[in-house]
Design a protein around this nucleic acid. Structure first.
Lengths: 240, 240
DNA sequence: CATGGATTGGATGGATCCAATCTAGAGAAC
DNA sequence: GTTCTCTAGATTGGATCCATCCAATCCATG
């Protein structure tokens, strides 16, 4: 019965096999596998994962509180289509949080981590450039490298709550969209690279306020780009 | 059958009768009706609300992702007991967010709202003073007035995401605890009143950075007080 | 008398069943 | 030909059933 799409469900490690399903659904949405605006049918997801509808429902509740999907009472769940102004609002908050993270990171960054940031930034630039020329549909690796930059800073900041809050914001918007921006627009890629470098420089100087300011502006600018992307594709469904 | 504790469940307004249950459980925890560290038994909650266990389970999932409760795989859910360092972390984040809210509020505050803030602050001071002298167990009204101050600022800030993020942090910690601080300690009450006044003054002057700084410091100080409260009662269960 | 293992009770988690609701499509009336 | 209505299918949401797992108790044995 059922297609049994993934075998990794047979984890008896003890904890959370419902959370697994939530994570998988989230990943499908994040990667663009499930497009924004799409309907999420419980029965389909259940058979996909080889489980009953019950854990799927609970997983959907989690995603609902996360804000990634909308659950209309008797009409099921749909992947939320962010309005441009929502993106701006979210990124204004994220900017402030990441600025705080950068500020905290200044006094905690080790030499090794600093180097890691620089290489990650360089890698991201090179890869997104390569992917742009290759014309690959979606930026896989360059997105990961871009994530490395931000996640290392939030990790070094040593504030679990801060990291979690930033994550919650990021998990509201599918990643593949923001990833496309990196490989798509040459000007934006260049800009992104230089802003990252400026942040690293400020942190290396030990200038907390400069690092915070640079980070805040960087995130806000990224948010503006993302918002404009959603504006252009306002009524169009992505990858329908 | 069952006690049918609340009749308001029969809402056919269309949306979310599961969310209602989540809200009720949350309220019970917030008010201290269900103490921190207490076990939440699904069957008990279900019969309390006159529903089956299914919606209760989903509600618990929501509270889990909110961080208010811990769900251990086969051992049920318990109200989370915040560690002092968690309080400090959370309030450092909240401080930054409320600072942003105050900053944004400066250019958006109307005359009427400004007055409302002042009266709310005064009311809170008077009531918490009265409640302190009356020796009432928990601060009901003074807490509400204190909330009014912060919520009006976040509302005026006109950023739904920001308001929601702040709420999420607040909903991690039961309110009755922080409310007790207001009525309990004379010095803290006085300090709280003056800090609020200073924030209002800065906003009235139109000084966004001053308002943000004052707010940030105010929230951080409040967080420090709260953290110390949890430190004192570290292993003691509240209202067991 | 203490300790270790088995047993029993209770609670959670997943699956299934059933009712209520919404959507789509066919057919009739204008 | 268009529109309204009614019915049939599908889908969600709540209730119930059953297996699994954990914890505490009790008994046997050293």
């Amino acid at each position: 019965m059922s297609t049994m799409g993934d075998a990794s469900l047979s984890e008896k490690t003890g904890h959370a096999l419902v959370d697994d399903i939530a994570a998988k659904i989230r990943e499908r949405i994040m990667s663009g596998d499930i497009p924004i605006g799409a309907q999420l049918r419980q029965a389909e997801l259940a058979s996909d994962f080889g489980v009953s509808r019950t854990p799927v429902r609970e997983a959907l509740r989690q995603l609902q509180t996360g804000g990634l999907i909308d659950v209309v009472p008797n009409r099921g769940a749909v992947v939320r289509v962010p309005a441009p102004w929502e993106v701006r609002e979210a990124y204004e908050v994220r900017a402030e949080l990441e600025a705080l993270a950068a500020s905290r990171a200044v006094t905690r960054l080790s030499r090794a981590e600093m180097d890691r940031l620089r290489t990650a930034n360089q890698e991201m630039y090179d890869r997104s450039l390569a992917e742009s020329e290759a014309g690959s549909a979606r930026g896989h690796s360059s997105r990961q490298e871009n994530d490395v930059f931000h996640t290392t800073i939030t990790t070094v900041a040593q504030n679990a709550r801060l990291a979690r809050t930033i994550d919650e914001i990021n998990e509201t918007f599918p990643r593949n969209v923001s990833a496309q921006l990196l490989v798509g627009d040459d000007r934006y890629r260049e800009e992104n690279f230089r802003e990252h470098a400026a942040i690293i420089d400020a942190m290396e100087r030990g200038d907390a306020v400069a690092a915070a300011d640079a980070m805040r502006e960087h995130v806000r600018k990224a948010g503006e780009h993302l918002a404009q992307w959603y504006e252009r594709r306002s009524s169009t469904v992505f990858r329908g």
